[in-house]
Design a protein around this nucleic acid. Sequence first.
DNA 1: AATAAAAAATAAGATACCTTAAGAAATGAG
DNA 2: CTCATTTCTTAAGGTATCTTATTTTTTATT
Lengths: 172, 172
Amino acid sequence: MKNIKIKETKIIAKGEILLKQGEIAKYGYFVKSGCLKSYAIDKAGKEHIMQFAPESWMISDIDSFTNQVPSLVFIEALEKSEVAIVSKSGFKEIDSLDKESVVDIAIKFRNNLIASNKRIIGLLSATAEQRYMDFTETYPTLTQRLPLKHIASYIGVTPEYLSDIRRKIAEK
Amino acid sequence: MKNIKIKETKIIAKGEILLKQGEIAKYGYFVKSGCLKSYAIDKAGKEHIMQFAPESWMISDIDSFTNQVPSLVFIEALEKSEVAIVSKSGFKEIDSLDKESVVDIAIKFRNNLIASNKRIIGLLSATAEQRYMDFTETYPTLTQRLPLKHIASYIGVTPEYLSDIRRKIAEK
DNA sequence: AATAAAAAATAAGATACCTTAAGAAATGAG
DNA sequence: CTCATTTCTTAAGGTATCTTATTTTTTATT
């Protein structure tokens, strides 16, 4: 029985890429300071942000990390960041971990799943303006900290259109 | 240390509602036969399907079930179904379960999370036509078994537009 | 502070997808 | 088998959002 293994801590420069689409993820990253993002590039070459990971968040492509399949996303630093690297070998089979760690992991997956499901409901049923307002309420800090174009990508609109949305909101 | 408790098995008529938006989920459902769906109703009164649960799938509003918060979705039978009812009391605190059950749950949450994340990527980056083709590939059985309007709701388009899409695909 | 680089705003025209409405086809109840 | 109900199709016009291009503003670098 073991705990999750932390390999080491590392400083990542802004713009540095930690995982590429198509590669198999060897690591997960716990962000100690700064901010990372994960994003997919579609057939038209456009970027779509899946997740932001500011301080105290974990980021990785779980499917690639656990099932050794090609990653669907890139992981990249939006700011100079310090990350703790979680290695695959310390993680491989969930049931080789001690129970306490498994409970932690189950709860993390569950919380992530709840958040992803809420995002799906939003994408299916809310307008871009509603999604933007939800984002600003849910992540007020990120709203101020990140360039608008990244938020646009996360909520699923172009930066130009989000700019329009913001003006309309301001006019009210 | 205990296992997950199954309360009982029940036959559900087509159209019967097992959970309503706004209620607190007391149960989760394991589908033994038939098919259930979960869906949100938006401000405009439109239905958006979150999940289909045919044989051997679990369905519930996890957030409501585990955190005693109002459900975002309805759960309803699409066909006459037989379900095993998982009661809240047998589930309450993850760490009151034996380790084997926790591992099972962690893996289920993880698989669900991976699937939800793929769906988000699709909603952000693929056209309606691509999403429909992905659906037919991923769920060929459901594609034939379910009315088109439900699939339209799941992929996030109107039935009319999905009908157009299908015609365009057929013309190729 | 000056300059370069990145981000944001603005605007006009294009398109994916929606709305409404009506008719055709399929399904289910008696 | 027939009638009623639900589902699917078709089509015209509308809206949300995108594309492309240009200008302005902000941020970063020397």
